[in-house]
Design a protein around this nucleic acid. Structure first.
Length: 464
DNA sequence: TTAGGGTTAG
């Protein structure tokens, strides 16, 4: 008697649901092939889902999908694949699905939009948004919320708000996504206005509301707002001691609002701390010029078995820069590579250049740049330039400025080009090389770069 | 729970 007759299809499928290891799933897979059970779309999806749920079963899920007939690649099969695929895979798969005449469902649209958000693929995401309209999902709350998240992540705040504004109904998740979008786009005031509107409209904030609110206060640097947010979060949302995210956000907020003591207090009161919490506290110490204290954080982290990451070292190195701890900083630069196996990134090199440059070792700083295994960016050159200005090294300053302007021109997003020209002009002026000053100003004019007018945030504050 | 989260260099 055949296996198929012994074991009805339904029984076979339910068995699939319980196979929890790859070997078992493969045995059932083999039985399904030999007994022609994989000729139904439903079975294909079941088998795929099963493989996806097993450790290291992903590749088999893909094989099942790609080896099945076109007719069996139905909406659920595509959806299962797109939901579980790698980040950069989802967009090509989505396009292929459409080419094969299967319109993606809501979940697939959400997955692909989320992937566009994470990879900052604005152009592609806009096309997905259009597709969402075409497919009739335009007024779906979850999809619209994902659109807000996508536009916010891609820094297109106007489009994010447009989606938010058009929505007929919004959930708490929607409000949180819009708040986060404002924070990411550095619109802290707008974020707090929206938060107030959210409360006025009777929407109950959640743990996820707390983070963008704290982040907005941190951006504004206004301690009274931050303290009020702290009070509100404790009273109306959650006990932040238990929540790693909110605790970390609070440490960050207090540091940026100038209250290191409150930041430390929150940090001490947190019941659990991971590398991000430790790094936020280290960043706070660095910001306040507490170099030695920041270095002690590294010791404490090691005692607690917390592994510092690349960001932690950026903070530690910055702390050394701000506190003038040159030897300690250079030692850290070695330590991160030798003891912690971390490859220095461009921001670490920038710190190394700063450490050497500040003490007048500008040639050594230039050597660091020359020996970098990665391409120096504008910040690295700008750091060298400011060290040269500090120590009156006109020749090297000219060279650094030249490289800086090249880097600026190569980057379409360069927003500091005008300041960089002015910096070079100031170097020449301090050396009384007036011809060169004129040349720089002329070059600016030729390139159509205008000097940005000065802006005082103190005055701006008074105008509010 | 088919939507949303924290740390970073001048």
């Amino acid at each position: 008697m055949k296996f198929k007759e012994l074991l009805p299809r339904a029984r076979c499928l339910s068995l699939l649901g319980i196979s929890s290891n790859k070997k078992q799933a493969m045995q059932i897979h083999a039985q399904m092939i030999t007994n022609s059970l994989l000729n139904e779309a439903e079975a294909v999806v079941e088998l795929m889902e099963n493989y996806f749920s097993i450790k290291e079963g992903e590749e088999y899920a893909r094989l099942v999908f790609w080896n099945s007939d076109a007719a069996l690649k139905n909406l659920s099969a595509w959806s299962a694949l797109i939901q579980r695929c790698y980040l950069f895979e989802s967009l090509p798969l989505y396009a292929q699905q459409i080419r094969m005449g299967v319109m993606p469902d809501k979940t697939s649209n959400i997955c692909v939009l989320r992937a566009c958000a994470r990879t900052l693929a604005l152009r592609e995401g806009v096309q997905i948004h259009a597709q969402v309209f075409k497919a009739g999902f335009a007024s779906d709350m979850a999809l619209q919320t994902t659109c807000i998240h996508f536009y916010g992540n891609c820094r297109d705040i106007d489009s994010a708000y447009h989606v938010f504004d058009e929505m007929r109904e919004r959930s708490c998740v929607t409000w949180n996504a819009m708040l986060s979008a404002y924070c990411l786009c550095l619109r802290a005031k707008k974020a707090l206005e929206l938060f107030n509107r959210m409360l006025r409209e009777g929407v109950k904030p959640t743990e996820r509301t707390a983070l963008p609110v704290l982040s907005a206060c941190a951006q504004l640097g206004e301690l009274d707002k931050g303290t009020a947010a702290h009070g509100f979060i404790c009273k109306a949302i959650v006990d932040y001691h238990e929540d790693l995210f909110i605790g970390t956000g609070m440490v960050d907020m207090y540091s940026k609002c100038g209250s290191l003591s409150n930041a430390s207090k929150v940090f001490e009161e947190m019941t659990q701390r991971n590398v991000l919490a430790w790094t936020a506290m280290t960043a706070g110490l660095a910001m306040h010029g507490k170099g030695q204290e920041a270095l002690r954080m590294l010791e404490s982290m090691q005692e607690q078995g917390i592994m510092p990451n690349a960001v932690t070292f950026t903070c530690l190195l910055t702390a050394c820069c701000h506190a003038g701890l040159v030897q300690e900083g250079l030692h850290l630069f070695e330590l991160m590579q030798i003891r912690f196996g971390l490859k220095p990134q461009v921001q670490h090199y920038s710190c190394a250049v700063d450490l050497l440059g500040r003490t007048g070792m500008v040639d050594e700083a230039y050597d660091v740049i020359r020996n970098m295994p990665i391409e120096p960016d504008a910040v690295v050159w700008r750091t060298l330039l400011s060290a040269c200005k500090m120590h009156n090294c006109v020749e090297l300053a000219t060279e650094a400025a030249g490289k800086l302007l090249q880097t600026d021109q190569a980057s379409p997003m360069a927003i500091d080009t005008c300041e960089d020209f002015v910096a070079l002009s100031n170097v020449y002026a301090s050396a009384k090389r007036w011809d060169d000053v004129l040349m720089v100003r002329k070059e600016m004019k030729n390139l159509g770069i205008h000097n940005k007018p000065g802006f005082s945030s103190v005055n701006a504050h008074l105008l509010d």
